[in-house]
Amino acid sequence: MTRPIGKTIRVVIVDDHPMLREGTRVCLERAPGIAVVGVTGIGREAIHLVAEHRPDVLLLDLRLPDISGVEVARQVRAAYADTAIVVLTGYGDAGYLRALRPLGIRGYLAKTATDAEIVDAVRRAAAGCTMVTSQSEGEILTEPLTPREREILRRLVAGQRNAEIAAALLISAKTVEYHVSNIFTKLGARSRAEAIRIAHEQGILLLEDAGRNQE
């Protein structure tokens, strides 16, 4: 969590959705020591912006209209290795994690993250520019369960089936499935049984109230 004193963290934001892009920009510019030097919604333009401004951190959305965010990440990693990449995406699934990991992505941030979480992730990534450790990378890449996911994990532990959970929470089975899939990914589980075992071992559900401070 250290960073060179007095140096402004320069950030480029890449997000194809204007509303979210603007929200992120406002949030980061409010934070002290962080300057947004470029904003775009297009993958190729993102690469140009990086080439031009050489930002400390690239906040990158994965779904872009022209080339995929993964491709942008790959090119940026190859050409401008001193730019840290924080992937800002809605997909909390295994495929992306697995594909992004070999690229040396510094941060992985859900789009639903709050302003504070975004600022924190940017700062940590910028710090990682000079001092990268496997721990820090692993920490950043580990995402906490959301309250909803906790709720569902609790019901899984209680032995409820997807359909029962859906009925109880008044949501669709597909939505439950999606949550369950995300829970598996976050816990590194391959099945329900495994997820329940990990939940017990790590005491995730016991620390329910401590929630976010756990990280």
Binding site: G90, T146, P147, R148, I171, S172, Y178
Partner: peptide
Amino acid sequence: QEIVEDIIASLRAICD
């Protein structure tokens, strides 16, 4: 927050 999260999850499930 939970409702919004469900909406997001639901939309993503549909998209995927």
